[in-house]
Write a protein that binds this DNA or RNA. Sequence first.
DNA 1: GAACGCAATAGTGTCGACACTTTCTTGACG
DNA 2: CGTCAAGAAAGTGTCGACACTATTGCGTTC
Lengths: 257, 257
Amino acid sequence: MTERAETGADSDSSVANEAETRRSADSSERAYLTIRKLLVEFKLKPGERINEVQLSRSLGVSRTPIREALNRLASEGFVSLTPNRGFFVRSLSTEGLLDLYELRSIIESAAFKLMCERADDSEIDRLRQYWEAIVDVYPNQPPDIILAEDEGFHLLIAELSGNPELVGQLSSINARIRFIRRIQIEHPSHDKAQITSHSAIVEAAVKRDAENGAKLLREHIEMTVSATQQALKDALLKVFAPDNGAELKRRRRARDA
Amino acid sequence: MTERAETGADSDSSVANEAETRRSADSSERAYLTIRKLLVEFKLKPGERINEVQLSRSLGVSRTPIREALNRLASEGFVSLTPNRGFFVRSLSTEGLLDLYELRSIIESAAFKLMCERADDSEIDRLRQYWEAIVDVYPNQPPDIILAEDEGFHLLIAELSGNPELVGQLSSINARIRFIRRIQIEHPSHDKAQITSHSAIVEAAVKRDAENGAKLLREHIEMTVSATQQALKDALLKVFAPDNGAELKRRRRARDA
DNA sequence: GAACGCAATAGTGTCGACACTTTCTTGACG
DNA sequence: CGTCAAGAAAGTGTCGACACTATTGCGTTC
């Protein structure tokens, strides 16, 4: 047996812990949410190496929950792991983004078709109600709300498909493209066509017109994609080059002066 | 020198490597693969609670890499995590299995269509060659080989779609249903119709007949599903009730020092 | 004899420590 | 002046320890 690590001495002795010493048993979960938020908000930048020690310090927990969170984020595609070098923020190139949107489109249109086949009338009506309840105020909300409501709409379709796997996949995809969707919503390119799309989709659902609805969804998403292209470029520029237009890839020795 | 992490080598027969060069950051990875294998082979049974200490002992590593592996497996859907109670083997009901197959079908038929649009002739030819190279010996191989070759075939279609996300999704799905596919292959219900299916799919690919190929794929998978139903039931019976018909849920008096 | 607690046990969640790798710094050499 | 090597520093990967929570087992009460 390895008899190392016997600092036996009264272990903690740390700060006077009156009521706050409780090790909440959800550090990992909070770390997960927090880090994901950092990623979504570009606080951690694409390609950047993630420093576990620094993160753990700033979240006030040890590295263990940080690593658990990062592992989850890795299998969800947010970050990548290189042995002995650690976690890196996975950069989402325009290309990679298109791939994700394509996957989303595939899943959503399939979900719509399944919903048409399987959902009963009251369920379809839930979709209609969901949309009608928000359609009027929809465009005037703050971006975060718009985003949440939009995701909710699409997610509800997935739920009504009756296949929980689709819901899971879509949630995961949504999380990964959320940052760019928010950017797009705040970008001037965001317009109201999306609203009409949703209404048309609801209409197709009510009529159980699977083919047409799926097509509308595909177009809806494609529209979003192209509207997103410019927004993405602007965002990347802002993130990488606050005051200079250098290449994105080179990042050596950027300090002098 | 504390000789830590010495092979431990017990429990499983999984031969490790013998390259002594540098073994380092792969405890987690090995734990991941090993545990996933245990799951796939029903060594860890659906619904069962996973004991980290026990696992870590039998793999000869500490709990840390075990937990990292379990976290990954959790976000891939193999296991679930209940706070303060630990990880549980996610039971795959017949229903859940159908959902997975449905997702697979969606992704594969979409991949096929994309492949028809995007792959160039030489790529399509790679698919044809892949299949022709194995078609003759295919049915006479051991189950593991058949399984790998079949997965390879479908995965190649995903690759030729040009969308790496599809490849990732399909791989993940494959891993989750692998155990049941193996069971099905070994089950009497396994027949040679699958071979003809593959040939027809290749043919459609060569002709770039997206619609027909996608339809063939859907049917191919549906056929597999129904062939799998009985196999699944048999397998579950074997796993849960080797010699008695007790309920599945109750499990008392399993103490052992 | 069954329901109810209460003590003992088992097991997870998190921590700090440390070995080993990678990266950075510095100084010798061409 | 630039190149390379050795050492220092930073950082990851894994470990054992321990606090806290869930579960089991036992004795008490009705």
